[in-house]
Design a binder for these strands. Sequence first.
DNA 1: CACTTCACGCGAACCGGTTCGACGACCGGC
DNA 2: GCCGGTCGTCGAACCGGTTCGCGTGAAGTG
Lengths: 352, 352
Amino acid sequence: MNIGEIARLAGVSRSTVSYALSGKRPVSDDTRRKIQQVVDELGYRPSASARALANGRTRTLGLVFPPAGNHYTGMQLDFIGSVVEAAAAHDYDVLLSPSGVDSDRSFQRLLGERRVDGAILMEIRLADDRVDHLAALGFPSVTIGRTARPEGGWWVGLDHTALAKACVQHLADLGHHRVALVNRPEQLLRAGYESAHRGLEGFTKAAAERGLTVRTYACGDDAASGQTCVQRILHDDPATTALVTLNEAALGGLYRGLAQAGRHVPRDFSVTGVVAGRWAETVTPQLTAADVPAAEMGRLAVDLLVERLDHPDAAPRQHLLAPPISLRASTGPAGAPPGAAPTADAVPRTAF
Amino acid sequence: MNIGEIARLAGVSRSTVSYALSGKRPVSDDTRRKIQQVVDELGYRPSASARALANGRTRTLGLVFPPAGNHYTGMQLDFIGSVVEAAAAHDYDVLLSPSGVDSDRSFQRLLGERRVDGAILMEIRLADDRVDHLAALGFPSVTIGRTARPEGGWWVGLDHTALAKACVQHLADLGHHRVALVNRPEQLLRAGYESAHRGLEGFTKAAAERGLTVRTYACGDDAASGQTCVQRILHDDPATTALVTLNEAALGGLYRGLAQAGRHVPRDFSVTGVVAGRWAETVTPQLTAADVPAAEMGRLAVDLLVERLDHPDAAPRQHLLAPPISLRASTGPAGAPPGAAPTADAVPRTAF
DNA sequence: CACTTCACGCGAACCGGTTCGACGACCGGC
DNA sequence: GCCGGTCGTCGAACCGGTTCGCGTGAAGTG
């Protein structure tokens, strides 16, 4: 069943059917009605491929994310979900592409074969050949995250530096002096992941400003690594009283490691970090954290991309977000000497 | 840059270029080399739309999942990730469709506009109009999950009945008599979600066989609901000593609710359920659970679908999985009277 | 009544591939 | 020297839409 069939049954030409359906030229009410009736009867829908071929637009967006091996974080899930829903609201489909490096097959399919009108890139690196490549091509894309030189690009980003700083300052205000940073895996640091580097930078600067003694750790994206990481932290400096995590997937393991070492959160150890809100609330005590507004970021990225597609000459736009820390129950004042009487219950508190 | 341009530069006809690239007809070595050289120089890749239009195959698979609002579970994430990777291995792209009901817009786009060669459906309901619709159309699809009448379909499923039974038996073996079931949300139960219903059935049957006293609860897909749910459970029957959860997203909240009520896991309360392995390990104590092999299921679903696409007349195939319970640290013997001396530490044990 | 104006609808070309039938060149055999 | 068969290539049709330019008939105008 194609447009020719509809035309035949409605007794008009193919072009008339096309115009009646698209509204790009006026069609008399009579013919429009007749055509619509036939279309409804047969449940006709124009072929996406043919349409894409004819007018060069696929009405599909590409969502490029790292090959991931097996470790997706909750944050990524939130991004994916919100991107898909926002795209649907704009009448776009989303094509998923597990793509790492510039030259890989998946990426070539997306661009070279013109499967998508535009792309959203996740997990940006400070020096990111994918971004450079797309910019050179002038291909419409929006990144979730910023490279080292984000000027003139289209992106929605998180101010990881400010977020990590805020975490440190929060801990310093509570009187903590010896603080550890739990970062993303070594391998991602080496690859230059933005969040890991900017977060590290903010952490280090803020610690220096406040005169804290700090150590930083790379940690695998899973619970077991988190547990091991806490062991290393407490082994390297048993006087550590707080940590900041940029690693969401390790969070459960961090808590477990602390429990195992006999440190009660938040009574004698404080935990905070940069984590998507939904996941900060699944642990007990709930995590005081700079909540990553993943859903909002996904939506904004789609909005930007759609705008860019609709107005090819529009000036680049960006959104830099810096959500405030949400106070929950995983941080508390430092200084309770080990062995002192318990001062608070482990049950969540709603405020400080 | 299109196939005509390549043909011109190589001094041959368009059809020869097509044959040289596809290998569907022999082409002399000389011309093939010449063509390949031009293709490489210009970095030519054939347009996916044009190709799809010409031969009717898009090399794209649709992944249909519920609109989800804002609540995606970790399990769904694992499905999505593994489906995308498995599809890439077969040289297919994946189109995401947040689609609930049969007649909705997203679903129509996928099928009506012929955007995909086949579809994978998630979150199956016992009576699922999407499945019926696809079956009636003869559209190649594979479901992750089974309807009430799965015979003759293509699917990969989990034996939720057996899994829930195994959980109950495990608890019964440990001496628990009063056990609660934490199910998926009320709304999903009403909609007839397979996992919720089959799991409930297995739970109820096994409990009857073992003579247990049980209560069942519907619970929202988030931590806060889990916490509330535990409160209800302990309010309704304070003598409850164990629970089985089919609700992965509520898990963190369940733990919190128990801690808040002063029940120590596993010393005086046991928790088990049906949860993806990765997520069972993020909580402390780690969850003894029937691990949902989400990654494997995604891969199997893609394999089945690709096979079905390659052999349109092949007989339907299925995979019913029933992974064993992984013993971790969240269950223990019942009967330690309240106030008795602690018998075990909360730290994970590796075996019973 | 002749002449413009406008509204509608038609045919053809085009998007960029694939595929089928045919044709010419070259080969060996008789 | 003619014939039959292979091999390699070409032209044309086709997939199913969109879009441009034009023709036609009815309505409006002087």
